[in-house]
C-alpha cells in the first residue's frame, strides 16, 4: 500500500465530501426543486448509485492491489447488484406493471407509471 504512511487519508476526505454533497443535492431535488417528479426520481437514483460507488471504491478499497486488484470483490458486487436490479424490476413488472390492484389511491395511470419506475 503506497498510502499507508500518509498522515491524512485524502481519498477518504474527498469521498466523504462527495457523499455529503450528493446527499444534500438529492434532498434538495426532493424538497426544494420544481423539477417534474419523473426527473427527480431518476436523478436521485443515479445519485444513490454514485454514492454507493464512492463507498465501494473510496472507502472499501474494492480494487486494492493486495486483493489482486479486487477481481473477486468486484465480481461479487457486480453480480449482487445485477441480481438486485432483476429482482426489483422483475417483481414490479410481474406484480404491478399495468395493473392498479383496484386500489383507491392508485386511480390515475400517471401515478402508477412513476410507481413502477421508482425502484429500479
Amino acid at each position: 500500500m503506497a498510502n499507508t504512511k500518509k498522515r491524512i487519508p485524502t481519498q477518504h476526505v474527498i469521498g466523504f465530501l462527495l457523499s455529503l454533497v450528493m446527499t444534500l443535492v438529492a434532498a434538495w431535488a426532493v424538497i426544494g426543486s420544481d423539477l417534474p417528479k419523473m426527473w427527480v426520481i431518476i436523478s436521485i437514483l443515479i445519485l444513490a448509485l454514485l454514492q454507493a460507488g464512492v463507498q465501494l471504491f473510496m472507502f472499501m478499497h474494492i480494487t486494492e492491489e493486495s486483493s489482486d486488484g479486487g477481481h473477486v470483490p468486484w465480481n461479487m458486487m457486480f453480480h449482487g447488484f445485477a441480481l438486485a436490479a432483476i429482482l426489483v424490476a422483475g417483481s414490479l413488472f410481474t406484480m404491478s406493471f399495468g395493473f392498479d390492484h383496484g386500489d383507491m389511491d392508485m386511480d390515475d395511470g400517471h401515478k402508477q407509471e412513476q410507481h413502477s419506475e421508482h425502484s429500479e
Binding site: V72, P73, G80, L87, V88, L92
Partner: peptide, 20 residues
Amino acid sequence: WIFLGAEVVLFATLFATYAV
C-alpha cells in the same frame, strides 16, 4: 466479499417486496 454479495441479494428481496 462473497457474504456481502449475498447480503445485496437479501436486501434486494426486501426492496422488491417494498416496491410491490
